[in-house]
């Protein structure tokens, strides 16, 4: 990968991400149905054993690109997140504008859902694709403002520098609005929990309605990986990175990541699905002004 990046991290990253995604699946099963830790394994084995089915006149390459790009985007986004916090901390790719890269990889999910929804040549997945485009319009701007606010506080677009700037006080404490907006938009970006309208059951699974077998496994594993990456990025952005007493940086990063992940997973059962025809107004009339005000406050404090 790039200079000075430990080879170990490059090998470990997919494993860590897979482990986090699996733990998210286990927590989800435990919170919602009380199933044991084997439930996601069961599901995965079943999907691997199953036949692939195709709809009539479907665009197979498009669907495959959509499905595969989800876990790939999550992995590429994870590559720039520091594992032990601090500048120069070990990560796979030491990119000075890592926040921008992270955000760009998240937006790949737009293409993923749209391609998977469009390619199936079936009405419900198509509508699921529409839904995610509307969702993107609603969440992406507040999300970017939340990222910008954290960057503004640290004066850097680098995750490592942002984490290092939180020596005294976590950004979550003095930019609570940005943190809340980040968490909400993380749910929307990973179409998870109350934001899972694009794949909701009312359309038979929406964009994922026609996916079966290994396609389905990759798609939903990719979604969990996105949730995990969003949780992992919250740690250097708002929770002080790897800083903490006694334990080494990587342990704190992991603990904080799992805590945020557990919160995101738990939220899934707490709310009904949020429809974009209602949420759009709130996103543009409340979230964007609130995120901008937060950025203004942070900007004034930083200038002082």
């Amino acid at each position: 990968m790039s200079d000075g990046a430990p080879v170990g991290a490059a090998v470990a990253l997919p494993l860590v991400l897979a482990g986090l995604a699996y733990s998210a699946a286990v927590m989800d099963a435990a919170f919602r149905t009380g199933d044991g830790p084997a439930a996601p394994l069961r599901e995965s084995v079943l999907l691997l054993l199953r036949q692939r089915r195709r709809t009539l006149a479907s665009d197979v390459p498009l669907v495959r690109i959509g499905v595969i790009s989800l876990p790939v985007a999550a992995l590429l986004a994870a590559a720039v997140i520091p594992l032990d916090g601090g500048p120069g901390g070990s990560r796979v790719w030491n990119l000075p504008v890592s926040v921008v890269w992270f955000n760009a990889m998240e937006v790949v999910a737009w293409a993923s859902l749209w391609l998977a929804g469009w390619g199936a040549n079936s009405a419900f997945p198509l509508v699921g694709g529409y839904r995610f485009l509307a969702q993107g319009l609603a969440y992406e701007l507040p999300h970017m403002f939340a990222l910008i606010t954290a960057s503004l506080g640290a004066g850097s677009l680098d995750f490592g520098a942002i984490a290092a700037a939180q020596d005294e006080v976590w950004f979550a404490v003095w930019m609570p609005v940005a943190f809340a907006v980040y968490l909400l938009s993380a749910l929307a970006m990973a179409f998870w929990g109350p934001m899972e309208h694009p794949v909701a059951d009312d359309l038979g699974g929406g964009a994922a309605a026609e996916l079966s077998g290994p396609d389905r496994l990759l798609f939903f594993a990719g979604r969990l990986a996105l949730v995990a990456v969003a949780a992992a990025a919250a740690v250097p952005l708002f929770l002080g990175g790897g800083a903490g007493p006694w334990l080494p940086g990587w342990a704190w990063t992991l603990i904080k990541t799992v805590a945020v992940l557990a919160l995101l997973v738990w939220l899934r059962g707490r709310w009904p699905v949020i429809r974009m025809d209602r949420f759009m107004t709130a996103a543009w009339a409340v979230l964007i002004p609130a995120a901008l005000l937060q950025a203004l406050v942070v900007g004034v404090v930083v200038l002082d």
Partner: peptide
């Protein structure tokens, strides 16, 4: 091969082909 609509295909609730 993939499922194809029969006479009218109207009853296929999943595929608005």
């Amino acid at each position: 091969g993939p499922w194809a609509p029969g006479g009218d295909g109207e009853h296929d609730h999943m595929s608005g082909h």
